[in-house]
């Protein structure tokens, strides 16, 4: 053994920020999460130069997967131009030299907070979702160790009871985003705070979805062609947000998840939440030849 073999050349910063041992650990944990879809796999979750709760979990996955040819797209609330999305995109490009894009069709890797793009993702694409709270049981059991035991026992009775009580009280399930869903018939997971609109996009999808909670140090995965079933009762069907009939005031896009913009006169207008879809729709309206991919929803209805 020589001193040379024990050392490596000094670098001011590792490629992709994380050092080799941090990447290896994340790789090992990701493989297990792929093998047991929906199961929360604990990982070390190193500190990164961004505050906890601001996408550090997604960032560590992206930093591990990235190489100089990975084309990255970063969105927050569906928008590429949100300051936090811009900040994360800038960081990823800075530590990797990877090219960036706003177009979901061009991206190899999409890091997102709270949305799945409207255009159907392909089987060579990875979607990394930032997760604030990886534990779907937290509303009924805040203690992580007890919740873990409940997953071990597939004990989701209290989860069902909570949904039932909402139906009794309010006539419907009151869960907004983060709708708890059963993955591969075994683990209940949170799909991260994506709207209910987006959960069906994960079911039997062609792309790979990696969900990572940096602060809580857990990651879970929805592999391609994997069942993702929102928890519902047979006689109370799953309902996505009632956005199918809304039209984007800016782009004219219709039948997608919308942002509601309150107006001075007490009314609201809507604009499409997937900002690049909005941009592409405008460009096409203005006569440009823009490729818009097939979308999961057509005329406001999910196509299976």
């Amino acid at each position: 053994m020589t001193l040379q073999s024990l050392t490596r050349a000094w670098e001011p910063m590792s490629y992709g920020f994380l050092d080799a041992s941090a990447k290896r650990e994340i790789r090992r944990k990701m493989l297990k999460a792929i093998a047991v879809p929906g199961c929360q796999v604990p990982y070390a979750s190193r500190e990164v130069p961004m505050a906890r709760g601001w996408g550090t979990g997604g960032l560590q996955i992206s930093c591990t997967l990235i190489n100089p040819r990975t084309r990255i797209k970063v969105i927050d609330q569906g928008a590429d131009d949100s300051v936090n999305a811009a900040s994360i995109r800038k960081f990823l490009a800075r530590v990797s030299g990877a090219p960036t894009t706003n177009d979901a069709l061009e991206a190899d890797l999409i890091q997102s907070r709270h949305r799945v793009p409207e255009e159907v993702l392909r089987e060579d694409q990875v979607l990394v979702l930032q997760v604030p709270n990886p534990e779907p049981l937290r509303p009924v059991q805040p203690n992580m160790s007890i919740a873990r035991q409940m997953h071990a026992d597939a004990d989701y009775g209290r989860m069902w009871l909570q949904l039932y009580e909402q139906i009794v009280r309010s006539g419907r399930v009151m869960q907004g985003a983060s709708y708890p869903s059963l993955v591969n018939g075994r683990f209940v997971m949170t799909p991260s705070p994506i709207p209910r609109w987006d959960v069906p996009k994960l079911h039997m999808a062609r792309h790979l979805t990696i969900l990572s909670a940096g602060r809580e140090k857990r990651l879970h995965v929805v592999p391609p062609f994997t069942r993702v079933e929102p928890l519902v009762f047979d006689d109370v069907p799953y309902r996505v947000e009632d956005h199918g009939g809304l039209t984007c005031q800016r782009s004219g896009a219709r039948g997608y998840f919308m942002n509601e913009i309150p107006q001075d006169d007490g009314s609201s207008i809507h604009e499409v939440s997937d900002s690049d879809l909005g941009v592409k729709t405008i460009r096409r309206r203005e006569g440009e030849a823009v490729a818009i991919g097939a979308t999961w929803y057509e005329n406001g209805e999910m196509t299976s």
Binding site: M13, Y15, A20, K23, N67, S96, L208, P223, P224
Partner: peptide, 25 residues
């Protein structure tokens, strides 16, 4: 300048990519 991947980084990154997709599909 952004960091440039070493040969080791490039190789292990590509290896993991193959393993990840092999297990995903």
């Amino acid at each position: 300048a952004h960091p440039v991947p070493s040969e080791f980084e490039t190789r292990t990154n590509a290896t993991y990519d193959a393993l990840m997709w092999a297990l995903s599909r």
